[in-house]
Amino acid sequence: MLFRIKSFFNLKTKAKYGLPLVLMALITSQTNAQDNRSFQIFQFPANKIPTIDGNSEDWKIVPENYIVGMDQLWDDSGKQPKADPKNLAVSVKIGWVKGLNRLYFLYEAYDDYWDFSLPGLHNDTFELIVDADQSGGPFIDRFHPNPNLTNTMDAYFSYHGVHAQNYHIFTPAVEKDWTMVWGSQPWIKNLPYANASYKYDFKPGQGGKLTLEFWITPFDYAGNNPSRAVESILEENKNIGLCWAIIDYDDVNKTENNGFWNLSKEHKMYGNASYSLPFKLMPLEKQYKKEIDAKWSFKVVNMAKREVAFVDESEGEITSWNWDFGDGTTSTEQNPIHQYKEAGKYVVILKIQGPKGISQLSKVWDVAVK
């Protein structure tokens, strides 16, 4: 980093602007580069998936250490030197469910002046950036790396929002769709890719509390044609890139906002996924996990030879495995490959044992060969 600063601020630059400016640039670069914050995404048990109804009851099981509050945000517009809970107070919780490529959000906010009476972008907003595969880099048309495509419709349709997504979520949305997807893929805000619900009791210009509950589907590739889209695969212990800003309006007659409360230290995070922050998809909390739990999957590796590979996915401390392949044969290997002599549909059982007890799982006729 020092080499880059020295290269940029050569002797002529120093002579023209002086040493203080050089030091200021160095300090600014260090501040932005040294943002080592990371956050966590709560894993909901499969039997406790939140209902999207604007009610926060389902989220009470999420520990407080998962909350991202105003203490993590800063107003990079410079209009608000520090957060004032009498003016604006926001908390965000994020969840996921193993096996579903969905991100669940609970957005709770108090504002002393809710501005949402106009039909356009002048609306209190939760602007969310999603880069689930952490590919990074610019992703809006005005930042296109090819200067010939900057701010063109070609860039909009082929590039804007494709590898990372930007949601302008209106808080609340009245007589308008719940969010504007900033890009050429508005289909991602509708079912079966997203859903949202609000709860509030204030009118435009009044203060009060808003609860917004929603889920979205992250995409590694999301162009204007949904048939070509590639969903992001959410996996336990994986980091994904997220960021957001709260755009707060306090006067319907003023075109400028009253604050841009940013989670990132870089203002342009709204169009550059490199400025997002890592959020870890956490395992289940201990109280929702069995001490020993048999789980397994399989794959037919050669149908002509009736060869099936079995994969142990059990959880807990395990000392022994016992497979019953349903054809009168067994194995004590953890991940066996079995060859069936005859075609058929089989009941396969995995029994595991460890210091905490015994568990088994059978699957009826899942394994079938011909």
Rank of each mutant, 00 (worst) to 15 (best):
W182I: 02
N101S: 10
Q30T: 02
S77I: 03
V68G: 03
N87E: 12
I52W: 06
G328A: 06
K6A: 09
V68Y: 12
K14W: 15
I129G: 01
A196K: 06
S184K: 07
F298Q: 02
D111Q: 12
Q185G: 00
I94V: 08
F170P: 00
I337K: 13
L21N: 03
L281C: 04
D141E: 12
D71N: 15
K199T: 07
E285W: 13
A309E: 15
W114A: 01
F3Y: 11
P204Q: 03
Q360R: 13
L281T: 02
E285M: 07
K16L: 14
K199Q: 13
S232D: 08
Q287V: 12
F279I: 01
M303D: 13
R37N: 07
K289G: 01
F3I: 01
P192H: 06
G354E: 06
W182G: 00
V162S: 03
N47W: 10
I292G: 09
P283Q: 05
F44D: 00
K289T: 13
T255E: 15
G120R: 07
W59E: 01
Y346V: 02
L100T: 01
W74L: 01
T211H: 11
N262K: 07
D251Q: 04
N253F: 14
V230C: 01
E64Y: 12
R4T: 00
I318H: 09
I358N: 15
G223Q: 08
Q353F: 13
L100F: 12
K60V: 00
G223Y: 08
A155L: 02
P172R: 05
T330K: 12
T150R: 15
K268D: 12
P138S: 10
V97F: 10
S274A: 06
G99R: 05
W178P: 03
Y17S: 00
Y200E: 04
T31W: 15
T332K: 14
K265N: 11
M303K: 15
K79Y: 04
V311A: 03
M180W: 15
T332G: 05
W365T: 10
G223K: 06
V364L: 10
K363L: 08
A273V: 04
S359I: 07
Q80K: 06
L281E: 05
K305W: 12
Y104I: 00
V90G: 03
L277W: 13
Y346W: 13
F202H: 02
K280M: 10
N239K: 11
H144Y: 10
Q80H: 04
Q34V: 01
G223D: 10
W365M: 11
K280H: 04
Q43K: 11
Q134F: 09
L284F: 13
F126W: 15
F214W: 08
G328M: 04
K6F: 12
L2K: 14
Y66M: 01
Q30C: 09
G316H: 04
F44P: 00
P81A: 00
I352F: 10
E57H: 12
D293E: 14
D324A: 05
M24I: 07
